[in-house]
Design a protein around this nucleic acid. Structure first.
Lengths: 274, 274
DNA sequence: TTGACAAATGACTATTTGGTCATTATTATA
DNA sequence: TATAATAATGACCAAATAGTCATTTGTCAA
């Protein structure tokens, strides 16, 4: 549906400029050159639109981060991690703006839980990364380290998302990787304990195999590209009845990984299925 | 004016719960038990209210931070700095919530510049602190360090402002002081350069002596307490025609420092006059 | 050319908003 | 008590909002 994509693009621009609440549906339809009715043919409500935007971006980001954490050699991991994050912020700076503007905590419950969910997935990835890189030596400080890394992400993103200055992303990633390493190897006083984390984190529910199969079915109908389509088909087969070799499965996952519409499914498959 | 204070208190609660845009003037007047007209006797508009709130809190915070940076011995400075910040966030958690929710960048221009102004004052204090503690050794990394410190402030504040968990502020301050020290002494790869800072920071204008004299005059009329009142009177005299000894001036500044209504003036006097 | 179906329109509604102002209540003063 | 001054009220307004729906327009195959 081309119209839906148009609305999402234009509204994202407006939200980044003015904020979500301050942007009216009328403004959106004007910028799209469509009528008000047409808007409501694509989205049930204004809320549904912002949710669609959040999902689109967060699914991509989480998938990308996960892929990097899983597939980068230790000695390059921190650097690649930061680099990927900031490249994503840079590429989708309108979106990053909206995220930073709106989702400190306001808006409706559904959105809040959604953000918390994605946030948690990212935290999980960061923790995996920390444990792999530093192992037992950060046993007591790993949660602090995780928060620090999240803090770095936010702080520096702020710096270049809101001010349009040219940024050397490689240098930024290097600089933050060094800082992170220093703290991981030398910090001794933990503040964020496992108990604290437990108090503020709800348990997230897993995605079931059946849900995954349904999801793949839906996506197959939306998608045009023959390679991606067949890959999805085969991966679904594999879920129902495993028969392919690991190398083939891996290849199929690679096929869909770089298609924005499939990223999320490839993430879910990596994470929950294979 | 008691009513003005009542409105500020109750509206702050509502803004913290629901956000600024989502809170109507009607809701505010209901919670205060006053009429709509009464609201507009105290504030010209809803915007003026939020500006008053921002000013009240930020003036206190900036003054407190400045005082600590000026009057703490080096070996305790980082700890006291973080401790003061988080104590303030803790004490004024409703306010901290509003700040974090709303002022990532939305709302009107005036407010944006106001926040930028206060932010800059804080940055200046952090830089002063860094330079005093580490001197030339952080010549190239001091702006990174400043951003990191700001990042720490934000990240950890988030953690305990939004989740109502009991927090050991001393431990938090210790932990962050250690991290800051580590980075200051060992980080070598700068990302935030002096040029970058220049690109994103407007020049702030100084407060003139005449403005200060006016300001003190206004405050003297508002204030009841005899000690504070006389101190203000004498300090104004001193501005017009210096005649008191440094010790006396210092004492007078101390007299007004802990009165929330005078904090800002004591800060301005320290900074721009004496 | 027709007719059936889907896509798109925009006038319309119901509600809410920030803000005003003629009126009324309260307090201080003489 | 009478008068003046100040504080407080809430009905009212214009503007804006999200969302609806009877109507029109466009696009097919037959």
């Amino acid at each position: 549906m081309v119209k839906k994509q148009l609305i999402m693009e234009k509204s994202l621009e407006l939200f980044a400029e003015q904020g979500f609440e301050a942007t009216s549906v009328q403004q959106i339809t004007e910028r799209c050159g469509i009528s008000k009715g047409a808007f409501y043919l694509s989205f049930k409500s204004k809320d549904e639109l912002i949710i669609a935007l959040i999902d689109q971006f967060m699914m991509q980001s989480v998938s990308d981060i996960d892929y990097i954490v899983r597939n980068t050699k230790d000695d390059q991991l921190l650097y690649e991690f930061y680099y990927a994050i900031y490249q994503s912020f840079h590429k989708h700076s309108d979106f990053a703006k909206v995220l930073m503007k709106e989702f400190s905590q306001t808006l409706n419950k559904e959105l809040f839980f959604k953000m918390q969910y994605y946030d948690q997935l990212i935290e999980k990835n960061i923790l995996t990364m920390i444990e792999r890189l530093y192992g037992n030596s950060v046993q007591h400080t790993k949660y602090d380290l995780m928060y620090t890394i999240k803090g770095f992400m936010n702080t520096y993103a702020h710096l270049f998302v809101f001010y349009n200055v040219p940024v050397d992303l490689q240098l930024l990633a290097e600089s933050l990787a060094e800082k992170t390493n220093l703290l991981a190897r030398n910090a001794t006083i933990p503040f964020v304990s496992a108990e604290l984390i437990k108090m503020i984190q709800p348990i997230d529910e897993e995605v079931s195999k059946e849900q995954l199969i349904d999801l793949i079915g839906q996506k197959m109908e939306e998608i045009e590209e023959p390679i991606e389509k067949e890959s999805l088909f085969l991966l679904r087969q594999q879920l129902v009845e495993p028969s392919l070799s690991p190398a083939i499965v891996n290849g199929l996952l690679e096929n869909i990984r770089n298609n924005p519409d499939c990223k999320w499914i490839s993430y879910l498959l990596r994470r929950y299925a294979f």
